[in-house]
């Protein structure tokens, strides 16, 4: 599934798609987080994204953002991280600017734009919302790096077996279909079709190839289905194979993550309140505020620190040999 061959000589129709796939699938996989049990990955990353989505508190969002970017950096490497930051930081700025254009609440008026007051509070609110979006974006990025499709299928295969089967089949089909698409396209070209350089011709060629592909795919898929049935798919008592085992380390990590999530949730519901209008109030240091800050610091930086620690250990180990 992951070994889609890259055709280097053939500058075909799908070069773009090929590149995107390569980017999506050949990510650098160095992480220790990947060796965690899929359940932990689901709880941790979805939990972090959810926690980030429900708050507009600048401290919590800031720490969550740093944690997410840190973790992404550890998983993808510095160069890729900087590349993605070059996109996401301007995006952050744009979202922050949109809010004051719509909202004129707030008591600190900075200036007037089109006869409407632009307030400091509205800008702060926009900035917080933008930080939230970008932080969630990075948490999902981490999630999709560590949560490979086989892990997703392992997790949901028991609850939704048929849907997971369709999902895994589709994931297998995509590279297969892509290969066949190229073959059909090459065959049609060699017959002398699409020789002209006109754009409509080239676009229309894609429709024709796609249509031919559907016929081929449907026919050959039924054969696969029959072979599956012959091997006993859907019969009672069939077991499935999974490479993920639940270790003692996983238990510790899960307990730790759940505890930290619990503490963080308690801190967030009892403290760490935030208000933007009419005047900004939010950064306070009561007991529950500090609990929430500590919770998000521990939890948010956990994955990135684990990766860092593993990297340091690896370096030390290598230098000794």
């Amino acid at each position: 599934m992951r070994k889609t061959k890259e055709s280097k000589g053939n500058k075909g129709d799908l070069d773009f798609a090929e590149k995107r796939t390569a980017n999506a699938l050949y990510k650098k996989r160095a992480g220790v987080t990947e060796s965690f049990h899929p359940v932990i990955l689901l709880v941790y990353f979805v939990g972090m994204a959810a926690v980030t989505m429900v708050t507009l508190h600048p401290v919590l969002l800031g720490v969550s953002f740093i944690g997410a970017v840190f973790c992404t950096g550890m998983l993808t490497g510095m160069r890729k991280l900087l590349k993605s930051l070059a996109y996401s930081i301007p995006m952050l700025a744009v979202i922050a600017v949109i809010n004051p254009m719509f909202v004129h609440k707030g008591e600190t008026i900075l200036f007037f734009y089109n006869n409407n007051p632009v307030t400091l509070e509205a800008i702060l609110y926009g900035a917080a919302a933008a930080l939230m979006i970008v932080a969630v974006f990075y948490w999902f990025k981490c999630y999709s790096i560590v949560m490979t499709s086989d892990k997703v299928i392992y997790l949901f295969g028991r609850i939704l077996p048929r849907l997971s089967l369709v999902l895994s089949m589709t994931l297998g089909f995509v590279p297969k279909l892509k290969k066949q698409y190229k073959k059909i396209s090459a065959a049609q070209k060699s017959m002398g079709m699409y020789a002209s350089n006109s754009v409509t011709d080239r676009v229309l060629s894609r429709f024709r190839v796609l249509s031919a592909l559907v016929g081929w795919a449907l026919e050959s898929s039924v054969e696969t289905a029959d072979s599956m049935s012959a091997k006993g798919y859907g019969l009672r008592g069939r077991s499935s194979y999974a490479t993920y085992s639940w270790t003692r380390r996983d238990l510790f990590i899960l307990v730790f993550v759940l505890l930290a999530l619990g503490v963080l949730t308690a801190g967030m519901s009892l403290g760490a309140g935030v208000g933007f209008y009419p005047a900004f109030k939010g950064i306070s240091a009561g007991l529950w505020d500090i609990v929430a800050y500590a919770g998000i610091a521990v939890l948010g930086l956990f994955a990135g620190l684990m990766e860092l620690w593993e990297n340091i250990k690896w370096r030390l180990f290598v230098s000794k040999v």
Binding site: L165, M169, T170, F173, V174, L177, S221, A225, Y233
Partner: peptide
């Protein structure tokens, strides 16, 4: 399984 397969193919397409 044939029906499941056809659904998977159309998703793939």
């Amino acid at each position: 399984s044939r029906e499941i397969m056809v659904i998977a193919v159309m998703t793939g397409i």
